[in-house]
Nucleic acid binder design. Structure first.
Lengths: 207, 207
DNA sequence: CAAGATATCTATGCGGCGTTAAGATAAAGT
DNA sequence: ACTTTATCTTAACGCCGCATAGATATCTTG
């Protein structure tokens, strides 16, 4: 899924330690999971002393913020791709949802860091606010193209939020063993995702 | 929301330390939040030495399991109450959802522990499996009463799972500041919850 | 009731954590 | 060349989860 560069330069002044730390963190996250992501372990992985990160990040939380940022960017890219590849506009919303859940499945630890840091500040990143050309707007635009009323902004926002909540809910649940037999019965994991989304009749009021 | 008894008995042999530890953990969780919930802090709160808990729980995880267990029981009770109070069967599903989200809002740290421990073992508690007279079945039964086909068990399970995912998704998101203005626009928090659930047209195939 | 067995708790210690403070070293500015 | 500044290291503090060994209270059996 990812190619996080390994760091090599081992001179005293590193060159770009913040970058190297973020990469190290993502490498650790992918290889060992969230519980292994200590600041000291990140420093070790990057080949510096335990205190070195503090010259680039105020504390551990700020490093995690940076990691989460990259996560949101990756998720955004996955949604762009999904929309572009959707066969028609009425399936586009489901395909966005499937792409979302697949991202969470393929980057479980990163996905967790993204929402953990968001919960810490009780706010999703700006990218997720109602705005132009961000992740949130991608879902909203699909809803409009599929027949939503662009003038009923409250209803549109509710529909967009509902879609996001649904996708997040499924993303968090899909990993549980309870659903294994349903995945089989549906004929595969993504078929299961689609079936679940079909049961959540996500739509705005019509124009 | 809760009445977690404070422990007093301070004799050498405590009497019921496991009980006292669980209560202490829940008290800490409510007062200080999840990050303050260390095993040592729980022992302090219960008035025993840091190593005492190990005679009643294998490790910290097992204590959290016990706390989570109580959480699921409380959630179950909230759902029973919501179903009993629902005006008619077609609103019952939404009311279950609202009750679910309100539980998460009122017990944020506990709710988090519940899902964190579940994720650790990649499985929700048995209570959540397809079965008789558990939390899962409460949602499923409402879907049947509302017109779902009791014989199409795959579809029923998908619909039940979809409802649960949606509720969980909203529960996790509702705390974010992003939604404050929507809550206002809807005329209150629970009205917002209802509006979101309305946009997720949760239903099984008809009989 | 006495005495040994058992359950429960304390004391101590290990390594790892996040974070801070003080000192070393390399690069940049004058 | 010399100073200044940015960057990194070393060392230390108080927390943490957890393991071990020893103390103390209750239970069991005579």
């Amino acid at each position: 899924m990812s190619d996080i560069p390994a760091t090599d330069a081992r001179r005293y002044h590193h060159g770009d330690l913040s970058r190297a730390l973020i990469d190290a963190a993502r490498r650790l996250l992918e290889a060992e999971g969230q519980s292994a992501l200590s600041l000291r372990a990140v420093a070790r992985e990057a080949g510096v002393s335990p205190a070195a990160p503090y010259h680039h990040f105020k504390d551990k939380g700020e490093l995690l913020d940076a990691v989460a940022q990259e996560g949101w960017t990756l998720l955004d890219a996955a949604l762009v791709k999904a929309k572009a590849e959707a066969p028609d506009i009425h399936q586009a919303l489901t395909e966005l949802g499937v792409a979302y859940v697949c991202f969470a499945r393929d980057n479980p630890a990163l996905y967790r860091v993204m929402y953990d840091t968001a919960r810490e500040k009780e706010a999703l990143p700006e990218r997720m606010q109602n705005g132009e050309d961000n992740s949130y707007s991608k879902v909203r635009d699909v809803l409009i193209e599929a027949g939503g009323d662009p003038n009923d902004s409250l209803d549109l926002e509710l529909a967009t939020s509902a879609a996001w909540c649904s996708a997040h809910g499924l993303a968090e649940m899909a990993g549980f063993k309870q659903f294994d037999h349903l995945k089989d019965a549906c004929g595969g994991e993504t078929a299961f995702f689609r079936a679940i989304f079909n049961h959540m009749g996500l739509a705005p009021r019509r124009r």
